[in-house]
């Protein structure tokens, strides 16, 4: 079953342009100049029930606008969409019963109240029966381990605890489709991990379709089965995570802290190793795992430098996206 389809979904904003200076302001007051700004340009998507999709793109690529159209908040300029069997902008209210939204920076929990009070309110908003609400609440409290925080005002919870409550709250009405906007932003690694597990579990148990935007490569890798990248309002890439991982996430960044100054001038180039920064006491290089293993790559440096400390990390998502754009551009040139 399809959870979501769009066809040629587009959105153009009219933006008021204010000429500079006082005379410009006065003129703009009487005869404003409008300029078209294409936010989303003909997006085609087809997502099956139960899929977990990462929806990526740089700031201003049209992610928010697309999500707002898919949830019925904004009407498109042209194109079609069907979400959970509804046309979002025509049946916004009916659709709202079937979907859930979590915005990392905008809380739906009442700040001064304990989470349980917000749960109660949400049960009324989504018209759950008392029995259903009680069962549902019990299940989520147990799985999300919310017991200890349930009666503590939200303002006294840590960000991680709050986020767990936030996500549990959005699952309360059994949404078929959950939109998550930066769900792990600002959390530490352990908490991020836990939140991803919980979302995954819901996805498996209830076949909830997950539609997620994130700047965290970990979210994409561990939570999603498919990646959609948009850029300049259009779909740039739509592939299974496995393949993206093989193609793009195969790079690791290695940071070395050196015990003494090293001279690398005479060192031969190693295939798959790319030195990014070389300063006294510091060395950063990236490793292409398709071409060389981490161990081998490190071997190339051992003996030549004295290592005091070392970290291996995923490249930030921006870099991955840049990489995708880069290869896309190359392909365009080739074809």
């Amino acid at each position: 079953m399809r959870a979501l389809t769009t066809h040629g979904l587009s959105k153009t904003f009219k933006v008021k342009r204010k000429p500079e200076g006082l005379s410009g302001s006065v003129r703009a007051l009487f005869k404003p100049e409008w300029k078209d700004k294409i936010a989303v340009h003909s997006i085609d998507l087809a997502i099956e029930q139960g899929e977990t999709v990462a929806f990526l793109g740089p700031n201003g690529a049209g992610k928010s606008t697309t999500i707002k159209m898919l949830t019925g908040i904004l009407h498109p300029t042209s194109g079609e969409a069907e979400v959970a069997g509804f046309v979002p902008w025509r049946d916004r209210t009916k659709l709202a019963f079937r979907i859930g939204t979590v915005f990392g920076q905008k809380s739906q929990l009442w700040y001064h109240l304990p989470p349980i009070d917000t749960f109660e309110l949400i049960s009324r908003v989504y018209e759950l029966t008392r029995a259903d609400y009680a069962a549902r609440q019990r299940d989520l409290i147990e799985r999300f381990e919310l017991g200890p925080y349930l009666h503590t005002p939200v303002r006294k919870l840590s960000l991680g605890e709050r986020m767990r409550c936030e996500i549990a709250a959005s699952f309360l009405h059994r949404p078929q489709l959950l939109f998550l906007d930066e769900p792990t932003i600002g959390l530490d690694v352990v908490v991020k991990q836990r939140i991803r597990e919980l979302i995954r579990e819901r996805n498996r148990r209830e076949e909830t379709t997950v539609f997620l935007t994130s700047h965290d490569a970990g979210d994409v890798e561990e939570l999603c089965s498919r990646v959609i990248v948009i850029h300049h309002g259009g779909v740039l890439l739509d592939e299974p995570v496995e393949r993206v991982k093989r193609d793009v996430l195969s790079r690791k960044t290695v940071r070395l802290t050196l015990a003494e100054e090293a001279d690398l001038s005479g060192m031969p180039e190693t295939a798959g190793v790319d030195i990014r920064e070389s300063e006294p006491g510091r060395l950063v290089f990236s490793v292409d795992l398709k071409r060389i293993g981490i161990e081998e790559a490190l071997n190339a440096f051992l003996g030549k430098v004295r290592i005091a400390d070392l970290t291996v990390e995923d490249p930030p998502l921006e870099e991955i996206i840049k990489h995708i754009y880069g290869s896309q551009a190359r392909e365009e040139v080739r074809s």
Partner: peptide
Amino acid sequence: GIWRFLLACWKANFASALEY
């Protein structure tokens, strides 16, 4: 449904106020 929803809103509002 709307009535129950309004009551829930007012209850939450009131509880918020009583926090302080």
